[in-house]
Write a protein that binds this DNA or RNA. Structure first.
Length: 469
RNA sequence: GGUCCGUUCGUCUAGGGGUUAGGACGUCACCCUUUCACGGUGGAGACACGGGUUCGAUUCCCGUACGGACUACCA
């Protein structure tokens, strides 16, 4: 189920919701219920549920678990300053300080009613007990105990008529019959507040199970990973590329960098979780099958971009050549190559073993699409010897004589030259590669020959002889 | 500062009162290969520290240190 928690109207970002759907879709995660998928518990946008929340807040006030507060932002600031100066350990709106503020506990009922009737702005705050142990069971961390004196009187209903996350979350989870709350560790400190809310609303019996996941940390310094870190350190943080609508700032995405969605999901799953076996590559189905909260660790995990690449490489190597051929097409077209999936499928075989990304397979395969524009200088200086042209000519003659031009026959033609001249592979191999591909390294030469075909290979030898002497 | 959470190789982690503390990424060496990769073999590399408990602790308990989260009319 996908619920949009958009209770803060000030933080509305155009396109953000659509982005969430697209990102999930790319990951292969389709919600059963959502604002666009429908379901029996809608609406699924909290902004559209606005009319539902007020009654619960009012109910809490009526039952003595919450109160109206009229303090202005300036007054709140003043209060915090005052407490700070008095060296109070934790300056907060709580059981001690609420008696000094403007709220329905300090003001007379008449005064409160008058203020509300006059349209004065107010919020509703939860009346957190002064001296009570709040305990709850976390599926990952076990029992967590927090003293209520450390929980402040959080605003649960804002002056703009919207609930805060805290109230909306509890109300919706209850109404939508949510069974498990699995969220980041940053929510742990406010979990006691949520437990209190369930209790005061009379829903404690059906309270969902809580699990607080360890955070993903920056690879270098400290702190949780943020979108800024990615582009600073050269890896994406977002699944899909995202352009901020106001600043136009672009955050790179895994999809655009050429990652497989499954590899991305696989990598993510292993940040904090592991199956307890040596298996690391898991399909989504296997992940669903194997994952348990019990095997989630407690400590935050530093993000490892290298490991992410490794995952992608594993997926690349497991992908069929036919599929790779199709995936390569857009990259080849972007390069301006006139080609088709059939040809790309052919070159997928030699290219896939030395690539991490699909894009790389095209990047490194330029020689399949045009004659060498230049010859690798290092190899040229080191391997292009005085005898090379002569051996190449002999090789050319042998190749010309071939009726079938495949891996086997070209290798045989090549070896014949070696035997005849009593030379080693190194005397001709690098020169041959240079003539055909312009490079000093790459996939099997004979495989390349069989793909390029007789005519092309021979004309390239001619070209090299002409250019390099 | 306060509250809460955490701490096994550089990183992600397995493990658990008596183990040669296991795997993966990265790194190094070698093998394979005309080359580069892939693959294979091997190396270096960790239980934060101090006290207990115990015959024995890296494992349990308590402190300390360090790290993280939170501390908004944000989620």
């Amino acid at each position: 189920m996908l619920r949009i928690e958009d209770t803060d109207q000030n933080r509305y970002v155009t396109g953000a919701e659509e982005y969430i759907f697209k990102a999930l879709e790319w990951c292969g995660l389709t919600p059963d219920e959502s604002p666009v998928h429908g379901g029996d518990y809608g609406p699924y946008r909290q902004s559209e549920r606005k009319p539902m929340y007020r009654q619960y807040a009012e109910q809490l006030v009526k039952d003595g678990y919450a109160y109206y507060a009229f303090d202005t932002p300036e007054e709140l600031e003043e209060m915090r300053e005052r407490l700070k100066k008095a060296k109070v350990a934790s300056p907060q709106y709580n059981a001690v300080t609420r008696s000094t503020m403007k709220n329905s506990l300090t003001l007379s009922e008449d005064e409160v009613n008058k203020r509300i009737e006059n349209g004065e702005q107010y919020v509703i705050r939860l009346k957190v007990p002064r001296n009570e142990e709040v305990r709850f069971h976390d599926e990952i961390r076990g029992w967590v105990v927090v003293h209520s004196s450390n929980v402040d009187d959080k605003v649960i209903f804002k002056s703009d008529g919207m609930p805060t996350y805290h109230l909306a979350n509890i109300v919706d989870d209850h109404l939508m019959k949510i069974t498990n709350v699995i969220r980041g560790e940053e929510w742990l400190p406010s979990a006691p507040l949520h437990v209190l809310l369930y209790r005061f609303l009379g829903w404690e019996e059906t309270m969902p199970k809580f699990a607080h996941l360890p955070l993903i940390l920056k690879p270098d310094g400290n702190g949780k990973l943020s979108k800024r870190d990615g582009d600073r350190l050269g890896f994406p943080v977002f699944p899909l590329e995202w352009t901020d609508p106001t600043s136009n700032e672009i955050s790179s995405g895994y999809r655009e960098k050429g990652y497989f969605a499954d590899a991305f999901v696989n990598m993510l799953a292993f940040l904090g979780w592991n199956p307890g076996t040596n298996q690391e590559v898991f399909s989504k189905e296997e992940l669903i099958e194997t994952f348990t909260l019990q095997r989630v660790g407690k400590a935050g995990a530093k993000f490892d971009a290298d490991k992410t690449k490794w995952f992608n490489q594993q997926y690349l190597r497991a992908t069929s050549e036919a599929e790779l051929g199709e995936l390569m097409l857009p990259f080849a077209e972007a390069k301006g190559y006139k080609t088709d999936v059939d040809f790309l499928t052919k070159i997928a075989k030699p290219m896939k073993e030395r690539a991490t990304f699909v894009g790389e397979m095209i990047e490194e395969a330029d020689f399949f699409f045009h004659v060498p524009e230049s010859y690798d200088e290092k190899t040229l200086n080191k391997k292009w010897k005085e005898n090379t042209p002569q051996y190449l000519k002999e090789l050319k003659t042998n190749l010309e004589a071939l009726t079938t031009f495949d891996e086997e026959s070209t290798e045989k033609a090549f070896k014949t030259v070696l035997e005849k001249n009593e030379i080693g592979f190194g005397q001709l191999g690098p020169g041959f590669r240079l003539a055909v591909t312009g490079k000093g390294m790459g996939p099997s030469l004979f495989e390349i020959c069989s793909i390029l075909g007789k005519e092309e290979v021979i004309s390239r030898i001619d070209l090299a002889l002409e250019k390099l002497g």
